[in-house]
Amino acid sequence: MEFDLSWILLGVPVVFALGWLASRLDLRQLRIENRQAPKAYFKGLNYLLNEQQDEAIDAFIEAVQRDPDTSELHFALGNLFRRRGEYERAVRVHEHLLSRADLSRADRDRAQHALSLDFLKAGLLDRAEDALRKLEGTRYEEQAWLTLLTLHERARDWQQAADTARRLQGAGQVDFSARLAHYLCEQAADALNKKKDPVAAEGLLRQAIECAAAAARPRIQLAGLLTGRNDWALAFDQLASLEQHAPQAIPLVASELVRIGQASGQQAQARALLERSYAATPSIDVADALVQAETASGVPAQVAREGYVRHMTQEPSLIAAARWLSQEPFAQDGAHPVVQRSVEHAARPLARYRCAACGFEAQGYFWQCPGCQAWESFPPKRIEEL
């Protein structure tokens, strides 16, 4: 059978015409869809860009009512409610999303994460914890663990916090060994103070030292436990080990080093350690401890307090001046007490510690900031030395 090429020549224009017609239909359909896009949605975006949140919420509600199947509108509306503090309405929006059977897995995980944030902001910590646990196995899993870690810390549930930190460390993102050492120290404090179990407390502290060898807190806390049972030599060894593992923390225990050194018969070792620390990093606390050590060893007080003068020669210090004046004999004209009180008053704010994260100031040193809850955010230096 002979093939007629004329049919091909006739078919080419037909195919071309059909293709052109199909493209025109697609363009027409696209224009229809664009015209049908909810105007209220764009109105809401305009209000949002102009920081008119009340009007934006009204516009988004109108858009959702016209097109209830659009999940993005629900997310936008829920986030707006949360930002305004209307947590109940945010919860309702995200729970409605989760109740939809046609929601994709990605949007379902996103809605679950948004719901956990709603509960967290509303202070419903139990419900927030339940919502966060449902995010395991999703792309929000690590964010959920970090939030759970914060919740456990706020609840002072140190065992749960330690378990969560180990899971995060197992994920390989961040090293949580220092944080784990703090949790063990908190558990040791509870065992000692609440359960009256010093044996368990010592075990937890030694575990913390193994967990984070460079952490200062477990060694300091263990030294305090050992002094409580008069194991002065072992306590001194723990504080002396700071020179190798955490030398920056020596100013925090300088006076205690002098006291324990005297009780254990290691005054010379304590003084030598403090002198090395001061030579490396001059500190008013170490200078003060050296003055105490010299006085305790029999050096006349007038000679010993010259340590404050030597410190002020290197580092101008109102704190050192106040402590030097407090040991000076009173002048006959009675001016000395007035000067001393004035200098002490001026030096008192400078003797505080300040959180590097939030600026919270305190007379004593905190391992966890009471203001922002950050760990080890207080430099072991007085404000005057920062």
Rank of each mutant, 00 (worst) to 15 (best):
E2Q: 11
W7S: 03
P13S: 05
V14T: 06
A17H: 02
S23G: 08
R24F: 09
A40L: 05
Y41K: 09
E51I: 05
E55A: 15
A56W: 10
I57P: 07
E62R: 14
T70I: 05
L73G: 00
G78S: 01
N79P: 04
N79H: 14
R82H: 00
A90F: 07
R92D: 15
V93F: 08
H96W: 03
R100L: 06
L103V: 12
R105A: 15
R110I: 06
A111K: 11
A114M: 10
S116M: 12
D118K: 07
F119V: 03
K121W: 04
L124A: 13
E129P: 01
E129F: 09
D130M: 08
L132P: 02
R133N: 13
R133E: 09
E136Q: 14
T138S: 15
R139K: 10
E141G: 04
A144R: 09
A144K: 07
T147E: 13
L148C: 10
H152E: 12
E153G: 11
A155W: 08
R156Y: 06
D157L: 09
Q159M: 11
Q159Y: 10
Q160W: 05
A165I: 04
Q169G: 15
A178W: 09
H182Y: 14
L184C: 03
Q187A: 07
D190Q: 15
A191K: 01
L192P: 02
A200S: 15
A201C: 10
I209R: 00
I209M: 12
C211E: 13
A212G: 06
P218Y: 11
R219M: 09
Q221C: 03
L222A: 04
A223Y: 01
L225N: 02
L225C: 07
L226P: 03
N230M: 09
W232H: 10
L234H: 04
L234T: 02
F236G: 03
Q238A: 13
S241R: 06
S241K: 08
L242G: 01
H245A: 15
P247T: 08
I250W: 02
A254P: 09
R259D: 13
G261P: 09
A263H: 11
G265F: 02
G265R: 03
R271Q: 15
L273R: 04
S277R: 01
Y278W: 14
V286L: 00
A289T: 00
V291T: 01
Q292T: 03
A293W: 04
V299T: 15
Q302T: 11
G307R: 00
H311Y: 15
Q314K: 13
P316Y: 03
S317E: 04
L318R: 13
I319C: 03
R323G: 02
L325D: 02
S326C: 04
Q332F: 09
H336S: 15
V338N: 03
V338M: 06
Q340D: 03
V343W: 00
V343L: 00
E344R: 08
A346G: 00
R352Y: 01
E361Y: 05
Q368T: 03
Q368H: 00
C369Y: 02
P370G: 02
C372G: 01
A374N: 08
A374V: 02
W375Q: 00
F378W: 05
P380W: 04
K381L: 15
R382M: 02
R382F: 07
E384P: 07
